[in-house]
């Protein structure tokens, strides 16, 4: 199916479960509310005409400086191995308590990127049995890929001096 057909079919079948669909630079993009994500994802996977059986990646985006609502977004990209087409789901997440349901029941491989969403963006993933830090060390404070997490601040991880309170190393903002 072409991207236009995918957007049209899905928006027609699922009705108001999909906020809106568009074709951006040739890619099929669907905007979904987090509560409808499992249902829409299951449909995308199980409908034989769509058959999005392959999870390509999950990504978080923080639109802090963009002045838009909601602030966060979780982006899912799926391929179909049989039909050779792709779709992107963009799930807007509110600034306070961003929560998104887990898709590990549908795609086993979702476990790592979902844990990364928690690790890097602080999204709560409901239904994920392992919500430890993935890349950052256990006990790390803050979520590095949020826009308000400074680029050059560093916490001193270990010090022989127990009373030493690590000072944040603040440097000038990065030049572009």
């Amino acid at each position: 199916m072409t991207s236009e057909e995918i957007v049209e079919t899905v928006t027609q079948t699922l009705g108001d479960k999909v906020e809106r669909g568009e074709v951006a630079l040739g890619d099929a993009v669907l905007f979904i509310a987090p509560e409808h994500l499992p249902e829409v994802a299951a449909h995308l996977k199980n409908d034989p005409a769509l058959a999005f059986d392959y999870l390509s990646h999950i990504s978080g985006v923080d639109y802090l400086d963009e002045d838009r609502e909601p602030r966060f977004e979780a982006v899912y990209e799926f391929h179909s191995m049989d039909h050779n087409h792709s779709v992107r789901l963009r799930v807007g997440l509110a600034e306070e308590n961003p929560t998104v349901p887990s898709l590990t029941g549908l795609w086993g491989a979702a476990v790592y990127p979902e844990r990364e969403l928690y690790d890097m963006f602080g999204f709560t993933i409901t239904g994920l049995d392992n919500d430890k830090r993935l890349i950052m060390p256990e006990g790390w404070e803050g979520f590095p890929l949020r826009k308000d997490y400074p680029l050059t601040t560093e916490d001193i991880a270990f010090s022989h001096n127990r009373d030493y309170k690590s000072e944040l190393v603040k440097s000038k903002p990065p030049t572009r």
Binding site: D53, Y54, L55, S56, M81, W107, G108, A109
Partner: peptide, 9 residues
């Protein structure tokens, strides 16, 4: 298997 390989991306 084919199915497992796709499921695990």
């Amino acid at each position: 298997t084919r199915e497992e390989a796709i499921n695990w991306s």
